[in-house]
Amino acid sequence: MTNLSIEMGGAGRAAGKLRRGRVPLGVLLAGLILTFMVVCALAPGFVAPYDPYAPDLLASLKPPSWAHIFGTDQLGRDIFSRVVHGASYSLYIGLCATALAVAAGIVIGLSAGVAGGVIDLALMRVIDVLLAFPGLLMSMAVVAFLGTGVTNILIAIAIASIPGYARIVRAQVMVVRTSGYVEAARVLGQPPMRTLLRHILPNTVGPLIVLSTLGIGSAILQSAALSYLGLGPKAPTPEWGLMLSEGQGYLRRGWWVGIFPGVFATATIISTTVLGRYIKALTDGRA
C-alpha cells in the first residue's frame, strides 16, 4: 500500500505496451505459472506421479532423477508430488485470507468514511494502532491466541491485512463522497443507503480489487512463513513452508529437500505480484 507511488512509473509503460496489443513475456510466464499452480491445487492427483505421504525407505534422500524429478526426502517420499500437493494449501490460504481481509476492510472503511465524525475517528485510531504492528508479528500473535492449523493461520493473516485495506477504502470514500455524481444523487433525494450501495461502493471497490491481487502474493508468503515457524499445518502435511523448515537441516546432504518447496513458493508469489501489477497498470491506463 505504501509503494503505491513507486508503481506509478511502471504503470504507464505497461499500459503503453498494452495499447500496442502485446502482453509482456514476463506477464505471460507469470500467467502460465499461476495456471499450473491452479491445476496443481485443483487436481493434484492429475499432476503428481506419487502419493505425497507414502514413504519408500529404499529410496530415501535420492537426488533428482527421471524417476523422481525433484528427488526424494529422507523417508523416500517424492518431493515433486509433495510440492504439487502443497499448492492447494498456499493458494487456498492466500485467496481466502485476502478475500476475508478485503471484505472486512470494506465494511470498516465504508463505515468510517461515510459516518465520519467520532465513529471515523475511533475506527481510524484503532486501525492506526494495528498498522503499527508488522504484519507477520500481528499474525503470530493471533495464531498464539487461536492455536495452530490451516484455518487459524488463514484468519490470522486476514486480520493482519485488514488495516491496510480499511485505510484505502476510507480514503477512496472520502474522494467519492464529494464527487459530482454523489452530490447529484443526494440532491435528487436518493435515500442514503441507496447512495451508499449504488454510487459510493462501486466506485470505491474497483481499485481495491486490483490492489488485492497484489495482496494475495504477500498472503501466500505469510502463510509459508507461519508454517515455517511451525504455526501452520502439522507434519506430514505437504505445506511449502513446513517442507522448507524440514529441509533446512539437510541442505548439505540433500539440497533438493528444501530448495524445491522454496522455488515453488517463490515462483507463485512473484507470479501473483507480476500479474497483480499488470492488472493494476491496465486499469490505471484506462482511467
Binding site: 505421504y53 507414502a54 514413504p55 525407505l57 529422507q74 523417508l75 507434519a235 506430514p236 537441516g249
Partner: peptide, 13 residues
C-alpha cells in the same frame, strides 16, 4: 528433529 521425522514414517506404516 530425527524423532519428528521418524514419527511420520510410523504414521504412514
Amino acid at each position: 528433529q530425527q524423532r519428528e521425522l521418524f514419527a511420520q514414517g510410523i504414521q504412514a506404516n
